[in-house]
Structure formats: structure tokens, C-alpha cells
Design a protein around this nucleic acid. Structure first.
Lengths: 343, 343
DNA sequence: TTGTACGCGTTATCAT
DNA sequence: ATGATAACGCGTACAA
């Protein structure tokens, strides 16, 4: 069934069928009804490829993320897809993994599908070395690119992010302010936002005037789901003599590992050890006590990103960078004096 | 830039360019090189819409899932996308939510995009009432449909699933066999597979000859992430006088709630309370002790589903139903006599 | 080995 | 209000 068949059955031209299909006002109601009847009778669906060819768009947007099964990225994908669909766009999802080569391949795949835009979910798409981001800039010359939680200054690239630097600085400052001077910073990613978080932590020390030992910044080089690995990692540090009375984690999963570490070593939380996670995800509710965590407003970020995206596609003038502030959500793993809000 | 421009620049016909593009062997190496040079020089990418129109496919497959941010569904989506991409297919993702109307809308959206196949992830797509599954059957008359963890007997519908009935029956039997006679069955979904799990639990009681009280089957009617809600729910049951020495949960998240319940009420695990979850997800590793859980081999299921899908698209004869067995993974929340393997 | 010409099913422009 | 027809850019059968 195509538009010709319908037009024949309805006794009109294909132009009229097309008008009916696209809700043009220039159709006599009687004609419209007649055509609609035939369409429904045959269950006719217009060919999206032909339409795409003519209009040069299929209203689809590419979503790249390293791993859609990651708790955080999965939420982002969900929010983005849901919002985009409300605006009539379909989402082509590609899980690129964390390796550079595969990211490039994923991107070129989306471009060859002629998506209207590309959304890169997660800070891991912007890399420290400028040349490694060339592929993004090159893509942006054809198709608008939207980054979630990453920053790249380039025409046609739009960034929506949370101020991770300020977030960890505030959190670390709150811990320092509560009297803890030895905060272990635990991280597992050296992505753009990963480094920003680390800087925030360092900045809090600098601001407080307290000395900061390199040993207090520990990189966990294991799988993103290896909670007991994190636990053992911390146990090892303790055995090696490292002393810390707080853990500031770059991800909730690391914080969960810290909780297990504390339980195994009979360290009381929060009295002997404070723990702060990042993302305020479901994991914070799993452990006992629930974990104080930094909420980076993922849902807000995503809906803003989509708003920017739709605006750009509609030819509106949109800000290339939108930055939100995170919020420290106090739960059971901290006992902070007061929530210090620094600029 | 289109194929005509390239052909002009290279001094050949579009047919030759097309041959080069599609790797036809009938091209003189020198010609191929000449054409390739021009293509690369201009960064030409063939128009996917035009190609789609001619070939009547853009090699894309629709993936429906209720909520891609759900821990379990997210993993499934990840595995499926990754496998499909290896076979050259792109994935259009739609998060339909759990309401019937929205599921129908999502499906028709995919069909109008002319996807080559539709994959429905999660048991919630098949509903108890036959008429509610009509939309799937109707879709299947145009496009092959693949169900993960659901069963529907209909031409052009292919099911890949885990035997949930047997899984919960085995788990319940193991608990009964270890001497616990009052197992609380905790569930939060009445989907197809949800009911199968419940039946398995009941069957274990029947087989053992022990009486089964209705009070031991409890439906938690809260959010899928409301762990403390589950905890309170159990506390309420306890206060109402319900006695149980094991919890068999239809989802890991419910099991986590049970762990918190036990901790609050100072109930020792596994000595006074055994807990078994379902899915063997990351959540089982978050709590302390780690949760014994039923592993339904999600990764295996997904790769089998994709294999079936590719087979069908290649015109091969494929089994309409593939059923795997789950496996009980023993961790810290049970102390079972021995792992009883019943058929 | 290469080229010509047509078909794919729309939308949009221009008549009428 | 409606119809005829030209694009859109590709793959491919057929001819050379």
C-alpha cells in the first residue's frame, strides 16, 4: 500500500492524500473524510524513508553513551529519550564503550544515519587531550552536538552540565568544617568531570589552609560494579597505614564500597568515618545507613539539554553552555555541623 | 554532495560510484582508487534515506522497554544493542512506561518508522487478558516481534525467556528443605513472568505437602525504587503478627528492603531470616551480607534473542520459543542444606 | 568493466 | 479545493 493506491481508492490525486496526511487546511471536509476512511480501512502507513528523503530528516536523534546499563547513564538515557519523544523525535541509541576508537565509530555511524542531532551522555566523551576531541568538532560541523556533563568550546556544540568542581569543594569543605581533616578522595575516572571533581576536593583543602597529602587521593582501577573490590582496596590502604576519617567518593558505588569496608573493620559510621557519595542514586538507599550523596540534578540537566536541543533544531538562538549547581543531600553517613554554602 | 557530484568529479557514472560504495568486485582497481579518493576528499557519506527508500530498510530495529533506567531492563537494553550493532543494525529505543495505552503508542511509532523488527524487553508487555495482547499480534503480521521474558503464541512472534516458574520453585524448595516452613513471598509485579514466579513458589509448597497461608504472599504496591518503603512494609507485617523466617523476593530491590528490615529489627541473617532475591543484580552486592539471588542469565537470554532475530531477518527458520533455566547463586543471606536441583 | 535509465514513495510547487 | 509533476539520492537491471 502506498499513496498511489490510496489515491486511486479514494478517487483523488496523491497530492490530496498527502494534504490529508499532513493536516493541510486546504481540503474539503468531505474529501478528507473519504480519504481518511480509505486510509484506515487499509491500515495505510506512509513510508517513512520516502518522507525522510524528501524532507531530509526522519526526526531522529542519536544518543551515545558509554554503557547504558550504568546506573547513572541509564537514568540519563531514560530522561532524554522520554523528553525527546514528547517533542516528536525518535532516539537511536549506541553504547559506545569507553574506548576512543569505538566512540569515533559510534559517532560516524550516527552521522551516516543522518540523525538531526547527536547527544553524548556522560563526561567521558571529552578527553584531556585536545586532538582526541577533534572527532566531536568535526561532527559538529555537520550536525549539532549536545554534551551532558562535559565541556567543549566549539561552534555547534552545546554543553549542559553540573558544576562538579563546586560540588565536591562544598562537600569536602563541609567535612573539613565538621572537624575531619583527613578526607580520602576516592575516584575511578579521569574523565573531564572526574578531574573537575578532584580539583574541587583539592580546592577545599587549599581554601582551608590544611595540608593535603597525595596519599589521600586514591584511584580505584577496577570495574564499575566491583563493590567488594572497592572494599578490599580500602582495607589494603588501611593495612598500609593510611589514616582517614572520611571518604568522599566520586561515585555512589565507591561510597557503598566504603560502607562495607567500615562494617568489616567495625568502624562506626558516621562517628568514626563519614562517607559522601556522588549522584544520589538508588545505591545510596541500599546501604544502611543511607549514604549522604551529591545530587547533580540529572533530571533537570536532561530536560534542559533536550530543551536546548529542540531550540537549536528549531533555529532558535541557544546558549552554548548551561551550568547547574549540585546539592548535597544529607543522610545517614555524615554528621555535618551545618551546610556551608560557598559560592 | 551526492552520488552525482562524486561521479562527475571522478569522471565515472553513478553506477560505478555505487559499486565502489557497496564493495562490488566488478570494478577495476584503478577506478576504485580514483573514486575512493574523491569520496574521501569530499568526506562524502551516502544518503541513508535514499538508500532506505530503495532497499526498503535502514537496518534499524526498535527496542521497547518500560523503563530503561530500571537496573534490570537497562542491562538488557545494553546487551541487546551491543549484539545487534555487531550485526550491523541500529537500535531505536522507546521507553514506553507500564501503561497499556503508551505501550501501544510506542509500538505504532516504531512500525511507522519501518523498523525491521521490534524487540520488547521485559515481561510486562504480555498481559493476562488476551485482548490486551492484540496489538502485539497485529504488529507481528507486518514485522517480526521478539519478546524477552514473555510468552505469546502467535505467528511471527519469538520468545526468549527464562523459566521463572522453575526458578522460584527451586529456590522455595531449597528453603523448605533447609527447614524453613514460613517463607514470605514478596512481589511487586503481576506481569506474566511475575505470576509465573508466584506459581513456582506455590508449587514448591504443594510439592512439599506443607500448608500455604495466603498471608505469606504479599504484594508491595510501591515504586520500583522505594527500598525504605519495602522495609516499612515488612515492619508493618511483622507488627501485625505475621511470622516468617525467610523472604523470597521477586526482585533484588525487594530483597534489599528485607535486609534493611532485618537490620532495623535486629534479626540475624541468615540465622533467623533467610533472604533470596531475583536477578542477581548489582544490588545484591550492595548489602551486607551479599544477597543470595536467582540469576536468570540475562546476558545469555539477550544474545540468544538477538541471534534469533538476525536469523529471522535472514529468512532462516527459527524456533518461536527458547527457554533457559535460571540458577540460584548462593551468597550470604542463606544457609541452605544443599542445592537441590529439581527438573 | 562501465554507463543509462528507471523505480522506490513521499512532499512541494505550480497550475487550474 | 484539487491535480499534474518535478525533485529527493540511491540501487540495480539491462545494455554496451
Amino acid at each position: 500500500m502506498n499513496i498511489y493506491d490510496i489515491s486511486k481508492q479514494a478517487g483523488v490525486s496523491i497530492a490530496t492524500v498527502s494534504r490529508v496526511l499532513n493536516g493541510s487546511p486546504n481540503v474539503k471536509p468531505a474529501t478528507r473524510r473519504k480519504v481518511m476512511d480509505i486510509i484506515e480501512q487499509y491500515g495505510y502507513i506512509p513510508n517513512a524513508f520516502a518522507r525522510g528523503l524528501g524532507l531530509d530528516t526522519m526526526n531522529s536523534i542519536g544518543i551515545m553513551c558509554a554503557d547504558s546499563s550504568d546506573l547513572y547513564l541509564a537514568k540519563a538515557v531514560y530522561y532524554i529519550e522520554t523528553n525527546l519523544r514528547k517533542s516528536g523525535y525518535n532516539c537511536i541509541l549506541i553504547c559506545s564503550g569507553y574506548e576512543h576508537r569505538n566512540k569515533e565509530e559510534a559517532l560516524s555511524r550516527l552521522l551516516s544515519q543522518r540523525v538531526d542531532a547527536v547527544i553524548m551522555v556522560g563526561s567521558n566523551y571529552v578527553e584531556p587531550e585536545i586532538k582526541d576531541n577533534r572527532y566531536i568538532m568535526s561532527a559538529a560541523s555537520q550536525t549539532p552536538v549536545f554534551l551532558l556533563n562535559a565541556e567543549l568550546d566549539c561552534p555547534n556544540v552545546f554543553c549542559t552540565m553540573c558544576d562538579d568542581f563546586k560540588a565536591t569543594r562544598s562537600a569536602a569543605a563541609a567535612l573539613l568544617n565538621s572537624g575531619v581533616t583527613d578526607i580520602l578522595y576516592l575516584y575511578n575516572s579521569r574523565s573531564y568531570s572526574g578531574m573537575r571533581k578532584l580539583s574541587g576536593y583539592q580546592s577545599a583543602y587549599h581554601m582551608s589552609g590544611l595540608p593535603l597529602s597525595n596519599d589521600l587521593m586514591q584511584f580505584f582501577d577496577g570495574s564499575r560494579e566491583d563493590i567488594s573490590g572497592v572494599c578490599h582496596f580500602l582495607c589494603d590502604l588501611r593495612e598500609q597505614g593510611l589514616v582517614f576519617h572520611a571518604v568522599l567518593a566520586a561515585e555512589d558505588m565507591l561510597a557503598v564500597g566504603a560502607i562495607k569496608y567500615a562494617r568489616i573493620n567495625r568502624i562506626a559510621i558516621p562517628d568514626e568515618l563519614s562517607v559522601i557519595g556522588y549522584n544520589n542514586s538508588l545505591l545510596t538507599a541500599c546501604s544502611d545507613p543511607e549514604i549522604t550523596s551529591i545530587d547533580n540534578k540529572l533530571e533537570t540537566l536532561c530536560s534542559q539539554l533536550v530543551r536546548t536541543c529542540i531550540g537549536v533544531l528549531n533555529g532558535e538562538d541557544m546558549p552554548p553552555k548551561v551550568i547547574y549547581s549540585a546539592e548535597l543531600v544529607h543522610k545517614g553517613t555524615t554528621r555535618l555541623r551545618e551546610q556551608r554554602q560557598d559560592q
